[in-house]
Structure formats: structure tokens, C-alpha cells
Design a protein around this nucleic acid. Structure first.
Lengths: 149, 149
DNA sequence: GGAAATCGGACGCAATGGGTCCTATTTCAG
DNA sequence: CTGAAATAGGACCCATTGCGTCCGATTTCC
């Protein structure tokens, strides 16, 4: 587990397909993207709305409208996509809400100690971009320096 | 989100409390642990069963029975706890099950590309031990070398 | 022999994510 | 000027799954 939602996965797929289909600022409509990805149109629409609110894609209304990327894929860190679909990256509920929500805070020896872990995971996800996920060859960049797999 | 389950959180809490209560090989029973952590007895029991199957704690049956750690906390990486409660660390369902389960594998450009990401997150979680979560002071060890926060 | 534990499994409730649909708004084409 | 085509934003229902609980079986100490 530790699984991210399907929507997030769809988000990455749609982003990559959008990059392939919208060269030179051309916009791509939902039906075409649904066709290309094999996903349902309503689902693709929902994903694009979320990506739009997060500022990764830009929607053009009206006939001949559609979506296009606001940035190249290598300028979109994976963490940004995940945050858009799932909210702040935090492994436990303790840290994100109010500290008072943890009823056993007085007894819990791990109280507040998860935050460094969250930062570590966050940093890991910030170093990987969406472009890395479509690279046809094994990725060397974040393999060597940053993440030291 | 990207949230791990409450059981996993409980697991860490119980492990740390067990370490505090079972000095010198003494075993600690469920009621005492429940008392000390503020969790319900059945829940603590369930958590300990899972930790036991994963080999992190050892259960002694019969009267005067209880649980004890099989290893010090600094020998238990966080990844091991997470895997025990949530299964293999994989961000998407694509990679863990059969590849055929992804219906749009022919269209999906990200197909199989998540695995390096999984490895990165996995590596991050392997470097942090349960002992790091109870350290009273800000952790320097994995802050400098391994994770470069 | 009885009490006090763990062990293993099964069961039901609640919450969260996933997928769909509807309406309003915008824009291009004829 | 009208209609078609597209996005924008929200609301809704359903399926899944995690969570908590409980029960019976087994083991061990007093």
C-alpha cells in the first residue's frame, strides 16, 4: 500500500499524453485525450479540472477549446501532482491537522516526530519530475546523486 | 494524503512503548501496553499480532506471558513496519500486481515507469529507523548524509 | 486444575475515494 | 445573431477498504 489514489495516476498519464499531443501550443480537447489514454471522458475531464486548478494545465473554453500544459513536463515535480490530487504530503494525520486532534498526545512518544519523515519523503518526490516517468530509458539522473538508490 | 494507515502508526507507538517497558528481556502484556499507550486492548492485541508475524516482536504465551522486542528499535527500519501493516511499498497498483491488470497498458505511456519512484521512496524509508522517531532531539543523522533534507 | 495470557480467524460498521452527471459559462463558426 | 462545442464547477451515489471488535483455541504458570 502506501498507495496514492487512482486519480493521481491518471493525472500523470493525462499530463504525459497532453505533452505528446499539444506540441507548439496547440490545445487538446477532452474527447481526444480520453481516446488517447483509454480513460472515460468524465474521468479525464475531472482530472484536467484538478490539474487546471493547480496551475499545471490551462483550459481554453468554447468551440475549438481544449487544454494545454503551462510548463514542460520536466518542470513539474511529482510532488506537485500528488499534492494537487491528495493534499499535503503527510504520512500521518497527526501532523497535518491540529495537534489536539491526537487524543493520546500526552501518552504518545512519537508525538510530532513524524514530520522529519514527511520531509524526507517530500524531498524525494520533489526531485522526480513527470518527465522522468516517460523517459524510455532507465533514469540515471535521480538514481545517482539525489536519491542514491 | 499519501497517508499510511492508523494501524501502522499504532505499530510504531506500540514498538516504542514496548522498548521503554521491556528492559532486560522482560515481557509486557497487552493490558499494560494498552494502559501505557491509551489505545484499546483489542487494538493493541491486533497490532502486536501483526508485529509478531513480521518478526519484530516475540510473544510469550501463558500466564505471565507478554511481548518483547526481538531487536532494538534502531535495528528496525520504518519500511519494515510499513510493509508489515500495509504490504509492499508501491505507490501505484500497476507495479505490484500482474502487469495485465492494467487494462490500458497498451496506451499508458507511464507503464512500468513508477518502479524507480517506488524504489526511491522505499530507500528513503529504509534509512529511518523506529528509534529515530522517539529521539527527543532533532535528528541529525539522516538529515545530513542520506536524505539531504 | 484453574487462571491468564497469546494466537488466529471472522465479522460489521463507517469513512473515503471513484466515477458519473448536471448546469452554467464561454467561444468559435455559419 | 444563433447554435454548436467546449470548459468550469459543483453535487451525488456507489463500491471498496480500512478499523475496530469479538470469539474460540491453545499454551503456560501458579
Amino acid at each position: 500500500m502506501l498507495r496514492l489514489s487512482k486519480l493521481t495516476d491518471y493525472g500523470v498519464v493525462v499530463l504525459t499524453r497532453l505533452a505528446a499531443g499539444s506540441q507548439a501550443g496547440r490545445v487538446v480537447a477532452v474527447p481526444e485525450l480520453a481516446q488517447a489514454t483509454g480513460l472515460q471522458e468524465p474521468t479525464v475531464a475531472k482530472v484536467l479540472k484538478i490539474l487546471g486548478q493547480a496551475g499545471m494545465v490551462e483550459g481554453m473554453r468554447g468551440a475549438r477549446g481544449g487544454y494545454r500544459l503551462t510548463r514542460p513536463l520536466d518542470a513539474i515535480p511529482l510532488s506537485e501532482v500528488i499534492i494537487a490530487f491528495e493534499g499535503p504530503i503527510a504520512l500521518t494525520a497527526c501532523v497535518e491537522g491540529s495537534a489536539a486532534s491526537c487524543e493520546s498526545s500526552g501518552l504518545c512518544p512519537v508525538h510530532g516526530r513524524w514530520e522529519p519523515v514527511n520531509r524526507a519523503v517530500r524531498a524525494t518526490l520533489e526531485r522526480i519530475t513527470v518527465a522522468d516517468l516517460v523517459a524510455p530509458e532507465p533514469i540515471a539522473s535521480y538514481r545517482q546523486n539525489a536519491l542514491t538508490l
